[in-house]
């Protein structure tokens, strides 16, 4: 693989469309089949780019291990995974935030209240900072179900519009952190392919804000 060839890890799903749109706005010629292809690897030869499509939670993992040079990852994932990657740019897309939610008008019990989350590390460090001793229950989706059915007293999850919480009769108790997508880079790629990565950062930085 020559130096100028770059591999970018893209998150599938929710963030993908916004990320692809941003890249197009920055002047990258992405193929039209990009958006609805089921392929996991797409090469754009005229740009000397290769895209890999990964689960959002896994993007930083690919980048940390260096099989992708750069990637687009949500801050929520970065907080949860604490991977050794450069966080170069706030892309300001897919804005949402991490919050604590639960049934309205409830208090959490004093003895090891249960907290359900897709983000066990974020949840655990948040409650530790609050001086609360909690039991974290890791779930993989439909977190809102947990308080409704009595699995947990609180949940920690991302909130974008608050619609899902509302529809399930839940309310927000605290905001933990703002989340947007970030451009991340592998520490070695950032040195070895510095010129290319800096160029991409500059192109993207220009169209953000």
């Amino acid at each position: 693989m020559n130096n100028s060839f770059l591999t970018i890890a893209m998150p599938k799903g929710r963030i993908f469309e916004e990320a692809a749109e941003l890249l197009r706005k920055a002047g990258f010629r992405l193929p039209p089949e990009f958006d609805d292809s089921r392929k996991l690897i797409l090469e754009v030869e005229e740009e000397n780019l290769r895209f890999i499509l990964a689960k959002p939670m896994d993007v930083v993992t690919y980048v940390e291990h260096g099989v992708a040079d750069i990637g687009i990852a949500g801050k929520d994932v970065m907080l949860e995974e604490e991977r050794d990657v450069y966080e170069l740019l706030d892309l300001k897309i897919s804005a949402c935030y991490l919050a604590v939610a639960g049934l309205p008008g409830t208090k959490i019990s004093d003895i090891a209240p249960k907290i359900a989350s897709k983000y066990p590390n974020v949840a655990s460090s948040y409650f530790r900072e609050q001086g609360e001793q909690v039991e974290i229950i890791k779930l993989n989706g439909s977190i809102e179900l947990a308080p409704l059915i009595g699995l947990a007293e609180r949940i920690v999850d991302i909130v974008s519009t608050g619609q899902t919480l509302k529809e399930n009769g839940l309310v927000e108790y605290a905001k933990i952190a703002d989340v947007t997508s970030r451009l991340v880079a592998n520490p070695v790629s950032y040195r070895i392919k510095e010129a290319r990565i800096t160029e991409i950062v500059d192109r993207l930085a220009e169209i953000i804000e």
Binding site: M1, N3, E64, H65, G66, V67, D84, N186, P187, V188, R191, I192
Partner: peptide, 11 residues
């Protein structure tokens, strides 16, 4: 200082 080689993800 740190030293890097292509193909290896860490210094």
């Amino acid at each position: 200082f740190e030293v890097y080689a292509d193909q290896v993800g860490s210094p």
